[in-house]
Structures are given as C-alpha cells and as structure tokens.
Design a protein around this nucleic acid. Structure first.
Lengths: 255, 255
DNA sequence: CGATTGATTGAGTCGGCTCAAGATTGGTGG
DNA sequence: CCACCAATCTTGAGCCGACTCAATCAATCG
C-alpha cells in the first residue's frame, strides 16, 4: 500500500510540477483546495458514459482507475489507465455529458474537488491554469498513442507497449522504482485496453515470459529486460511529454 | 467549393460558437487576431512528429488536413481528420515537442496565428479561454472514440463510422448539407485511419455500395441511407459534443 | 502522350478469435 | 481449519476476417 501523505493532494502537485513550473504560492494554493475524501472498491464508478458530467473533479490519491467506452455490440474498450496523482474528471466536467466512463480498477482513494473551486484557483494563478491545460494535452497525447497502438501494432507489441507505459508512469509518479512494478489489471482488462481477447493476452504474456522479457506474480510484474521490452513494444516515451528530466538511457530507439 | 469569407477566421469563430457562448466583443477580438495566410498542397506539413513544437497556431480556412503518427515498422496511423474552421496546432504548441505530424490532405488554405497573440486574447476574455479549452476537450473525445473504433469494431463498422463522422462534421461546419458530402481521402488514407489495408477498404466500400448504403464518385460520397449507415457503423454523435452551447455551469464561470 | 498515383481483383496465408473445458486463486462462512 | 464459490487464468482445437503479394485497370497530370 502506498504511503499516505499528510497532504492528500501533494501527489497531484508533484505530477503537475514535472511538466510546469509552479511557485510555492501556487503550490500552496493547490494544496489548500477543498475536497471530499472517498474510498472506492474495484468497479466503482467515478463517472458514467451518457450521464450528466459531474460538477467536481476527482484526484486519485491511491490505487488505480481506468476510462472506458462500450461499443454497440457490448464490447468494452479501455481508453486509459490512471494512478496516484492523476486528475480524472476535468475531461468530462467541462463538457455537458460524459462521453466515457471512469471506474476504479483496484481499491482506491480519491479526493473530489468542487469544479468551481478548481477553476477559481486556476483563474487566480495563470501558471496553474497552464499546468492543468498541459495535463489535459498530455492525456490527449496518450490517447493518440493508443490509437496507434491498437490500430497498427500486433498483439505482442501492444501488450509490451502497455507494460512499458504503466511501468514508466509508475516510476515517474514515484510509486515504484526498480524493475518491479504493480500490475493493476486482469488479463481481461489488459485485453480490453489492447483490443485483444483475454485468451490471446494470456498466450502473449506467456511468450514474453518464456522469452525472458518479464516475470509476473499475481499483483506485480518484473521487467527483466526493459530496453528489449521497449524495443519489442515499439515504445518511445516521447508521447508522455515528461520534461527534460528524462534520462537518456531510458529513451528508446524509434527511427 | 467553400465560399471564401471576407474574414478568414470566421469559420473558426462559427465553430467555437456552436459549443460556447461568445459575446460580440469576444467575437470581434477573435476576428481581429493577427495571422499569416498560406496555401498548402496535398502532403505539405503543418507540424512534424519529433520536431520542436511551432510557436503559432494554424486555423484551417479551406481544404482538409489530418494528424498522424508513424509506428516503428513504418506503418502510418491517421489520428484525426480536420476541415474548415478547425484549430490545428494548440495541441502541439503548448507542449515542448510535437508528438505527431499534421499534414494537408488536399489543397488547403490556413491562417497561422502567433501563439502569444492567441494566448493574450484568451487571457483577456475568459469566455474565449473556455471556448478554446472546450475545443481541445472535444478533440480528445474524438480521439477516444477512435480508440474504440479501431480497437473493437470490424472493418465494415470502422469504415461506416468514419463516413458518418466526416459527413456529420461537414454538415455541422456548414460545408455541405444534403446527403452528398466531400470525401477528402484516398482509400489508402482511409485504411490508415481505420487500421485497415487499402485493399480491404476497397472491398468494404464496394460492399457498402452494393448494399445500398452509399454511392461514391471520385471526390464525393452520397449517403443513400444515413440512419442505416449510422446503425451499421455503431455511430452515435454524442462524442462530437455538438450543441452544448447552453452548458450553464460552464459558460458563466471560468478563470 | 508516357508516367505516376489510385482503384480493383484474385489467390493464398495467418494472426487472433471463438467455443469449450479445466486448473488456480482468493475470499467467505460455517 | 476446511468446504465452497466465484473470479481469473490456462490450455486445446478449429475457424475466419483481414492481410499479403501480385497483377491489371483507370484516372490525372506534366
């Protein structure tokens, strides 16, 4: 279990600071935002496709969540995966009606911030406004990479790419550091994220194990050979738009 | 052929007004923005993946453009299609380095607006800021729908869905009205957008024709049976977020 | 006019799906 | 502590949608 911060919103602030410069005044303004705390169980909804958009914005304090849409024939597509520090509902809140659902994937804690309070703080501090806008743009960049992932890559590449993204983002978020990281999804969910069936995900993961790229236990994954997994998954971290802090040794090689 | 407005930026203003309320002062401020006019040929780049993000923002005045990314094995994924009135480069400009390319698909006219000028106008007029932010969120919503499209639907559904989206958006943009609309893409590009090969797109289109859903000539498509095509393509226009201009909780407030 | 790009057609192949049956695992209550 | 149940994971066999590889036809344009 992740360590609980004395200030629940600090993971969010930390994340925003990685891409945008924030003064201590601005940091304090964010940390002082009002919020309502809630604990969620796996499957609990933060927003529902088709319903009126909520008038608050949720920040993930611990645990994992995902966005998803359901197609007409009933199949589910997972659109993104979220973790500690991620801002979840600005996407839906500023539009009239939610175009996708947001659900907890694990037990999770969230802070609901009244939308108006967040907008007021952004209005008072241009740097915060920029930081939030940039955060939304990075989300959009990740969506674009996922279109490429499901549209152009084969099963092995898709699964490898997803593994790399979750691992890298956990590292960036300070959730874990070494080659081991938390794998919050079932194979079914992994399939829904990659546009594959769970059966095929299973077989693909087995092959990755056999080839010495990863090792899995129930709740976590060990990446045995990150450079090779990145290459296999055609993964380049550029789309995550993490600042210049990126270590060149972690960057992969896409021509 | 679209009528050239005396004020080149008016298609953009028109589009923003469909989702956000703008006063005449704000409208005038947008129309008075400085810009540099340019004519592009098919294939010309507005931004290149991997290059430093441009310091201007492009507005499409006429013609069509698309966003794309190239995968490691050289295949291209088209991420979105754009038409008259669309704001193109805010996505890339506010981040350090472009994560995708933007190219003209047809002969096209664009207005390059200096980024700072646009940001200044947004800073001075909260409603414009909201409108631009909402525009970016709608783009993100379309990305999400495309993930669902390539991830969960079969070839016939994907192509039908794409046809519906282009047709509906052209109608919303006032480019055409009846069942006929402009089809700006080659079958190759259609394939890259849908995650299919051009060969399979060809066969899929033929079947749609044979089934009486569409009729095609070189540069345009006639949708013979829109309701049925929408049903075939599992298309619901909700994700385009048209007609949200009355979102009371959003319009009045914003930093 | 060739030359080039885009559309069309055919035949053969395969990656990932479907369907169906077990094997593990984790949680629950007696 | 064990029995039981519900998810989840695993494995096998067969099939099909979409791809690949080629060749041909049609349109556009210097």
């Amino acid at each position: 279990m992740p360590v609980m911060h004395s200030l629940p919103l600090s993971p969010m602030v930390q994340k925003l600071k990685q891409r945008s410069k924030l003064s201590s005044t601005e940091t304090d303004a964010l940390l002082a935002l009002p919020y309502r705390f809630a604990s969620l169980a796996p499957g609990d909804y933060l927003a529902r496709e088709g319903e009126k958009a909520p008038d608050h914005c949720a920040v993930l304090i611990s645990g994992y969540a995902h966005r998803s849409k359901i197609s007409g024939n009933g199949s589910r597509q997972i659109l993104s995966v979220h973790m500690r520090g991620d801002v979840l509902d600005l996407e839906n809140s500023l539009l009239e009606v939610a175009d996708h659902s947001v659900q907890a994937m694990t037990y999770a804690d969230v802070a609901y911030i009244p939308l108006q309070a967040l907008l007021d703080v952004a209005g008072a501090h241009p740097a915060i406004d920029t930081a939030l806008r940039r955060d939304a743009l990075v989300d959009a960049s990740i969506f674009r990479e996922w279109i490429l992932n499901v549209g152009q890559r084969n099963a092995r590449q898709r699964v490898s790419h997803l593994l790399c993204e979750i691992a890298l983002r956990q590292k960036d978020a300070g959730i874990c550091d070494g080659p081991d990281f938390i794998w919050p999804m079932t194979q079914e969910q992994c399939g829904d994220a990659a546009g594959l069936t769970s059966v095929h995900v299973n077989r693909t993961l087995q092959r990755l194990k056999k080839d010495g790229l990863i090792a899995m236990s129930r709740q976590s994954v060990t990446i045995a050979d990150l450079p090779r997994l990145q290459q296999e998954g055609d993964f380049s971290r550029a789309y995550l738009h993490q600042g210049a802090a990126a270590c060149s040794s972690c960057t992969s090689s896409r021509p």
